[in-house]
Structures are given as structure tokens and as C-alpha cells.
Design a protein around this nucleic acid. Structure first.
Length: 820
RNA sequence: GCCCAGAUGGCGAAAUGGCAGACGCGGAAGACUCAAAAUCUUCUACUCGAGAGGGUGUGUGGGUUCGAGUCCCACUCUGGGCACCA
């Protein structure tokens, strides 16, 4: 493709200049209004792909636009550089993860520079830097001191492929590992947890305050999963003092309880099991322990195996509502980790209980009137029946009465339960931040003293997928003297989930040189919260929830006094790039490298494509057509080049009416583009600029031509509006025009003059019976009566009139609709 | 199963309840050229009509309204999230 200028030369020149001159470096004492623009912490996976290009194009647009708006924009870059892929690659190549990681960091760094994205590189942060590790460990210890980090044995998700434990959030709905795709199994292990559940309520409430996409907020709410109910006792029928404590959200259906169920791991199961039932119960418990959650649910879907999923314990408890004795079952459809690990079963009003009751021949008693023709379980609302003192009450009222009853008679307590579990942060892997604790036979868990941080992993470690942490096999690392008593002790060999690293990096960016603490709150305060956070929808739950938790916890443990409790004010989630219906990704091998476009349309052309192709939040389908669109974007920039260079332009002296109108159009475009950029409607912003370019072209190349002063002003505006989108070509054209003066990127974003934006004449549409029959130019402030008169006397309308119209609807100055 | 988002020309898309298809891609014709590329100009939803002009049209079926791509109800399809959470 022949172009009127050398794209490569121009782009290289400006990229070097932005880097060398530190154009986008900002200091913490900058007097301007602060703005924090941030793209999500990238994992260094090598050279950029189209997803990166899209992400960093948006981020760079925000940075450059807000800078032109006169703000001090913090635009940092760094790497989420710990993680499994590098470790696995190192095992395969018998090398060290650092080597892979740092090579790929360099690749991605040069990729984003080649795209023309600008950052304050002095602030670069990456997770495996010893300083970052030191302060990540500082945070862990502060959390530990505050009781937010604790060690516990728990049934955990073990991924055989990754040879490590996973967080609940990393297990997909089908029970497989989000990374390796292996079926996750369950193990009981001593692990470290963060007490994120302490913050469940705050995390839920604060969602309302965020300017985030509604669907991300919904996903967060659902993940936290708050449910209000009541806990109460079902006394043992044998008269012993014991009682089975259950949780329910539907106390109003208590008269329909026909049995109770405990989880296979329930502590009272043994006591409940009679001799005759012991064998059956043991078989059920063992089977449940062996199987994962997924296999448990699979049996439900299969339908047929329900009888194997539960067993009668031989014991009975008393339903406090009816005083009836009901059997206690053990079944794997009840989870030990939710509520009290035991439930009252109401088959008529719960789908799962219904299915179980049918298989085991248990009675089903309806307590809520079903809608006309309804069969099967009914979990909806309605009037109560067969419910003694609740009869006739609607659901809400019945709930209240039932709770009062339970509080009075059955040890009832109103309770809130969350789906959210504590965050398991232990990972049996090498390439991560070591957990800084020591285990001493005398002193137990001993935190590593702050002045001994960072705890760094040694390099000479054998990396293999053995199921235990590679660090555990390194005697030099493992053996240590106890910081408290000086005796022989062992170090923790696990590392932290890498989501811990991405939970506070944005704070380090704001004060990357801080020593002695993760960051200085006084330095960070003016920048926080992040004004605009940009990333992929795939982080809607995990990363965003963890970072929100960290922010709150950091404030509470005293590391971030006076900082906001929510880190990201506004979030934008960009759409995915898809190819043949699936996500474009390295693992699928369907990447389209951005490099192939740099020599033809340039980074500017590719950026313009990503901005123009569709709404930024929508997915992009990459097809053969995409190539043509990209070339079209390149051709458009050529037109801008020729136009701004004054090619084919006829100049005349003095301003004509056409010149005045062009200047008005300039202001209209400023208004449109500014509004669109604020609203993340980048595709229409580009369209507006293209329209403006076409207008300028037609005008300047017409035989009458353009006044030189108007031409200069009008094309200056064009370059300024385009500058955040296609920064290189605009910088170059501006420099040719104003050599030695400040760059277009340092100019102030133009402001639309409302008087110029307003039109002197507008087109009013004339309809007859809702059909367009004519148009007429009128003044924008035309009154309704005048508009009606104009319409009724217009020749295009008159020929349709058959008499007095039945009605005339005038919406001045847009249209008049005449109903016959 | 539940929740959310979406469905508009050949394609990407645009449209505070008020001219559907802006902007761009692709296509057609023309200008320039020995020729091609590049560039420029015009046309380009479907349909009836020689033409002027008319009719139809935003996934389907209803509704509200002078007027619906937009609001309401029901449905179809596509994408995403959640899914024993009592």
C-alpha cells in the first residue's frame, strides 16, 4: 500500500521521543488535577495480541485525552509476573521461570511501545521484584496480626494437573480447573486463608456505589450470595439433650418438614447413626469423601442414582411446628460448609427435597397453595395451608410469624449466610511469593520478623510436579532457626496465590519508590481511587473481588489510613476478540499478530480500527473483512495527511459564508466527539471525526476554496480531536505546521462554543398520517402554531389534504404530523 | 433450570419515542492514465414502475401511541454468568 508518508519512520520517531523525553511521566507533587488511568495488570505472555492492542488502545486514549483536558494523568505499567505458565515452561526446558518471565516482559513491553501507548516507565512494578515480594509479605504479616490471615485444615480443591490447591473461584462450573481443565478433586489439607468473609456484607453493599457495568455488579452480588434466614434446633426424638441445628430461608414452610438431612461431614452424624444403619451410612460417607463436588452434582443431573446419595441414619428429630417425629437422613446434597451443615427438608416447596423424597418414599405435605395447574415442587409465594397458626397468611407474614415462633420455642436466631467462602491463598508451587512464616516445635506458627523480609526463594530448586511445594525439598531454604526461641524450625514452603499480587499493585504504582512499607499513604492518597480501570470481563469476579477486599483490609490494618475503601471508581470492561466463534487466545493458536500491520497502516491505523470497529464493550468477530477495515483506516489517515498538508486546496482571501459554516461544523464536531469520548462511544466519535474530515475535504477542494486562516483553524481542531486516537500521525503533522513549538499532545483539548454549535436553520419533517411527505427549512426556535401553519400550507402536504385534518401533532422544530 | 446481554443492508455498525441504515468496508459506474495501482466523483435496504413516483422493511406474534428499532406482554434464537448455597 503506497502511502504519502513513511508510517514506520514517523511512528518510530515519536515513540522514541515520548520515551526519551518522558512526556508522560508525572510526579507526585504535580499541581494539576489528578487522574488515574489504569489497564489491568498483565501476565507477561509474550508479544501483544489483538486483545492487548484493544485494551492498551483504550487505555492510551484515556491517558492522552485526560492529559489534554489539563490533568496530571498517572498511567503506569507493570507485570503480574508470578504464575504457573512460566513455571511449567521452565520444567519442560529444565530452566528457571525468571528467564522465561523476563524475556516475555521485554517482549510485551516493546509491543506496547510499538503501539504508541505511553506510560510513566519509572513507576514500573512487577510481582517477582524483591521489593514487591518484601511488601507483599509485609501485607500478609499485617493481615495475620489482624486475624485476617489464618491457617486451617479444610477440604480443598486439588487440581491434579496443576499439582496445587485452587481457590473456589478458580474452579469452573463443571468442576474443572479454569487453567488446566483437569477435574478438580477434594483433599483435606492445612492451608492459609484470608478472611474475606468478614467483609462479605461490606463488599456486597459497596457494589451499589460503583460506576461499573451492571452485569459485573450483578456477578459480584451473586458470587457473594447473601441470604437471610433463621437457624433453629430440631431436638433429638430420643429425649437426649442434643439437638440438630438447621438453617433455612423458608421458616414459613416448617409445617411441611417431613425429614431432616445432615451433610456427610456433619459432626453429629456419628451420634445420630444407629447400629443397623452404620454400614449404609459409612458407605455413603466414604463415597462422598472420594467424590468431588462435581460428581455429587452429576448424580443429581443423571437422576437415577439419587438413592445412592443418601442414607437413613436410624434416628429421628422433632419438628417443632407439628411436634411430629421425622427421620434424619445423611445425604451429599447437603454441604457441610454452608449454613449449619444440616437442613430441615420440605419436599413440597423445594426441588431437591422433592426429588430426594420421591426416591426414598418420604411423605410430601404442601404448605403453600400452588398456582392453578401447578404440579411438582413449588418454591414460590402464596397463601399457607396445612400450617396451623400460619394458615391463610401470605409468605412474608408467615415468615415473620414462623421466626417469632422459632425464637421463642426452638432456640431460633435470625442469621445471614453467604455463599462466599474464605479465600484460600496457599499454593504448592515455586513461582510465587513465599508465605513468610516459620513453624517451630516450641512456638508454633511464627511470623518472619519484618526486618528479615523479603523471604526469597532460592534459585537452585528442583521444579517438579510432585504434589508438594518445590521449596519443601530445598533443605537450605526449609531449615531455619526459630525467630523467637532460636531452635530448629522449618519454613512454610507454599507460595501465595498470584491474585494476591494483583490485589494491591495499583497502590504501589502510585508510590513505587517507597521504602520500608508497601506505599506511603500520603503519596498515594491524591491518586486514589483509580478514576478509570480498564480490563477484560473475565476478571469480573476473581480479581475485582480480591482487590476490593485488599483495599478494605489494608485500610483496616493501618497500612492505608485515609484511603478510599473501594479502589476502582469506574470500570470499563472491553469486549473479547473472537475468531470463528471462540475467544482469540494463545492457547487456541488463533492469534493475529499486530506486527503484520505496523509496516502497512501503522500502529495508528490499527488503533483506529479497534476504536472504529464497534462499541468498545462489544465482542469483535475477527474475519476476512477485518483486514479490509484496517486498510480502510489506513487510507483514512492518508486522507488526513494530504488534507492537512494543504494538498489540492485552493486558498482565497477573506472569509466567505462557507468558511463561517465550516467553523461552525468544527464546533459541532468538538461537541460530538467530547461527548462520545466521555461516554466510551469511541466508534461514533471516530465516525464524527470522519464526517468532519469529509466536510473539510469537500470545502477546501471546491473551486471556491478555503480561507487560509479558517483552513488552519479547522484542521488544527481535526488534529487535536484525532490526537488521542492516532497519536503519531497527528504529532508529526502538528510539528510540520508548528516546528519547535509544543506538541499537539500538549495542547488543550478544544471546547465547543454553544453559540457556534447551534444551527440557524433546521429541517422540519412534514408527515401525513405518519408518512413523510415533505421537508422544510425553519428556524430552530419556531413555535408550535407557526410550525403547524407552515406544514398545512406546504405544497407537498396540501396535495394530500382532503378536508379539515382530524388532528395535527406539532413537535417544533423536528416535525409536524397531520392526521386525516 | 435461574439471572443478564443481544438480534437492524452483502459486512462492521448508527439512531434523547419523531426522516431507519450516519460513518466505514465491500460492490457498480465514471474521471485521471498508453495501461494498472493510487486518487477523485456518483450510485448502492428490498420491491413495483419505462419514468415521475408508490409500497414494504429493524428476529417472531400481540399491545400502548398521532408516531415504536426504541416502551409493555408473550415467544424464538445467539452469547455470557450462576447452578445442590437450604
Amino acid at each position: 500500500m503506497a502511502r504519502p508518508f513513511s508510517v514506520t519512520d514517523v511512528e518510530r520517531k515519536w515513540q522514541a521521543r515520548w520515551l526519551d523525553e518522558g512526556t508522560y511521566e508525572v510526579d507526585n507533587d504535580d499541581p494539576r488535577e489528578r487522574y488515574y488511568a489504569l489497564c489491568m495488570y498483565p501476565y507477561p505472555s509474550g508479544t501483544a495480541h489483538q486483545g492487548h492492542v484493544r485494551n492498551y488502545t483504550f487505555g492510551d486514549l484515556v491517558t492522552r485525552y485526560q492529559t489534554m483536558r489539563g490533568k496530571a494523568v498517572l498511567s503506569p505499567f507493570g507485570f503480574d509476573s508470578f504464575g504457573l505458565p512460566a513455571e511449567n515452561a521452565a520444567i519442560k526446558a529444565n530452566s528457571h521461570p525468571r528467564i522465561f518471565t523476563e524475556r516475555r516482559m521485554e517482549e510485551l513491553k516493546s509491543s506496547v511501545r510499538r503501539l504508541g501507548a505511553v506510560y510513566d516507565w519509572r513507576r514500573e512494578v512487577y510481582s517477582h521484584h524483591p521489593d514487591y515480594i518484601r511488601y507483599a509479605q509485609t501485607i500478609f504479616l499485617k493481615f495475620y496480626e489482624a486475624g485476617l490471615a489464618y491457617r486451617a485444615e479444610a477440604p480443598v480443591n486439588w487440581c491434579p494437573g496443576c499439582q496445587t490447591v485452587l481457590a473456589n473461584e478458580q474452579v469452573l462450573g463443571d468442576g474443572t480447573c479454569e487453567r488446566s481443565g483437569d477435574l478438580v478433586v477434594r483433599r483435606n489439607l492445612e492451608q492459609w486463608f484470608y478472611r474475606i468473609t468478614d467483609y462479605a456484607d461490606e463488599l456486597l453493599h459497596d457494589v451499589d456505589t460503583l460506576q461499573w457495568p451492571e452485569r459485573v455488579k450483578t456477578m459480584q452480588r451473586n458470587w457473594i450470595g447473601r441470604s437471610e434466614g433463621v437457624e433453629f434446633d430440631l431436638p433429638f426424638a430420643d429425649g437426649s439433650k442434643n439437638a440438630l441445628r438447621v438453617f433455612t430461608t423458608r421458616p414459613d414452610t416448617g409445617f411441611g418438614v417431613t425429614y431432616a438431612v445432615v451433610a456427610p461431614e456433619h459432626p453429629l452424624l456419628d451420634a445420630l447413626t444407629t447400629e443397623e444403619q452404620r454400614a449404609a451410612v459409612r458407605e455413603l460417607v466414604e463415597r462422598a469423601a472420594r467424590s468431588s463436588d462435581i460428581e455429587r452434582s452429576a448424580t443429581l443431573e443423571a437422576g437415577g442414582a439419587l438413592d445412592k446419595r443418601g442414607a437413613f441414619t436410624g434416628s429421628y428429630v422433632v419438628n417443632p411446628f407439628t411436634s411430629a417425629e421425622v427421620p434424619v437422613y445423611v445425604a451429599d446434597y447437603v454441604l457441610a460448609t454452608y449454613g449449619t451443615g444440616a437442613i430441615m427438608a420440605v419436599p413440597a416447596e423445594d426441588e431437591r427435597d422433592w426429588a430426594f423424597a420421591e426416591v426414598h418414599g418420604l411423605p410430601i405435605v404442601r404448605t403453600v397453595e400452588t398456582p392453578e395447574g401447578h404440579e411438582g415442587p413449588y418454591a414460590g409465594e402464596g397463601a399457607h395451608i396445612n400450617s396451623g397458626f400460619l394458615d391463610g397468611l401470605e409468605t412474608a407474614a408467615a415468615k415473620e410469624r414462623a421466626i417469632e415462633f422459632l425464637v421463642e420455642r426452638a432456640g431460633g436466631v435470625r442469621t445471614v449466610n453467604y455463599r462466599l467462602r474464605d479465600w484460600l491463598i496457599s499454593r504448592q508451587r515455586f513461582w510465587g511469593c513465599p508465605i513468610p512464616v516459620v513453624y517451630c516445635p516450641n512456638d508454633g506458627i511464627v511470623p518472619v520478623p519484618y526486618d528479615q523480609l523479603p523471604v526469597l526463594a532460592p534459585d537452585d530448586v528442583t521444579l517438579e510436579s510432585s504434589g508438594q511445594s518445590p521449596l519443601a525439598t530445598h533443605e537450605g531454604f526449609r531449615r531455619v532457626s526459630c525467630p523467637t526461641c532460636g531452635g530448629e524450625a522449618v519454613r512454610e514452603a507454599d507460595t501465595m496465590d498470584t491474585f494476591t499480587d494483583s490485589s494491591w499493585y495499583f497502590l504501589r504504582y502510585a508510590d513505587p519508590f517507597s521504602e520500608g512499607r508497601p506505599f506511603d499513604p500520603d503519596q498515594v492518597r491524591p491518586w486514589m481511587p483509580v478514576d478509570q480501570y480498564i480490563g477484560g470481563i473475565e476478571h469480573a469476579i476473581l480479581h475485582l473481588l480480591y482487590a476490593r477486599f485488599y483495599m478494605k483490609a489494608l485500610v483496616d490494618v493501618g497500612l492505608a489510613p485515609g484511603l478510599p475503601r473501594e479502589p476502582f471508581t469506574r470500570l470499563f470492561t472491553q469486549g473479547m476478540i473472537r475468531m470463528d466463534g471462540t475467544k482469540m487466545s494463545k492457547s487456541k493458536g488463533n492469534l493475529i499478530a499486530p506486527e503484520k500491520y505496523y509496516d502497512t497502516v501503522g500502529a495508528d491505523g490499527l488503533r483506529l480500527f479497534h476504536l472504529f470497529v464497534g462499541p468498545p464493550a462489544d465482542d469483535v468477530d475477527w474475519t476476512d473483512k477485518s483486514e479490509e477495515l484496517i486498510e480502510g483506516c489506513g487510507r483514512y489517515l492518508d486522507r488526513v495527511w494530504r488534507l492537512c498538508g494543504g494538498e489540492d486546496v485552493t486558498f482565497h482571501e477573506g472569509e466567505t459564508e462557507a468558511d463561517v459554516e465550516v467553523w461552525r461544523e468544527a464546533h459541532r464536531t468538538i461537541a460530538r466527539v467530547t461527548e462520545d469520548l466521555e461516554a466510551w462511544s469511541y466508534n461514533t466519535a471516530v465516525a464524527a471525526i470522519m464526517e468532519y474530515t469529509n466536510t473539510l475535504s469537500r470545502w477546501a477542494r471546491s473551486p471556491e476554496g478555503a480561507a487560509r486562516s479558517t483552513f488552519t483553524r479547522a484542521t488544527d481542531v481535526l488534529l487535536q480531536l484525532l490526537a488521542p486516537m492516532t497519536p503519531h500521525v497527528c504529532a508529526e503533522l502538528w510539528e510540520q505546521r508548528y516546528p519547535g513549538e509544543k506538541s499537539v499532545h500538549e495542547t488543550t483539548w478544544p471546547v465547543a462554543d454553544p453559540e457556534l454549535v447551534a444551527r440557524e436553520r433546521v429541517v422540519m419533517v412534514l408527515q401525513v398520517n405518519g408518512k413523510v411527505r415533505g421537508r422544510v427549512e425553519v428556524a430552530p426556535d419556531i413555535g408550535a402554531q407557526e410550525a403547524e401553519d407552515v406544514a398545512l400550507n406546504h405544497p407537498d402536504v396540501v396535495k394530500f389534504l382532503t378536508g379539515e385534518p382530524r388532528r395535527v401533532v406539532a413537535v417544533p422544530p423536528r416535525l409536524v404530523n397531520i392526521i386525516l
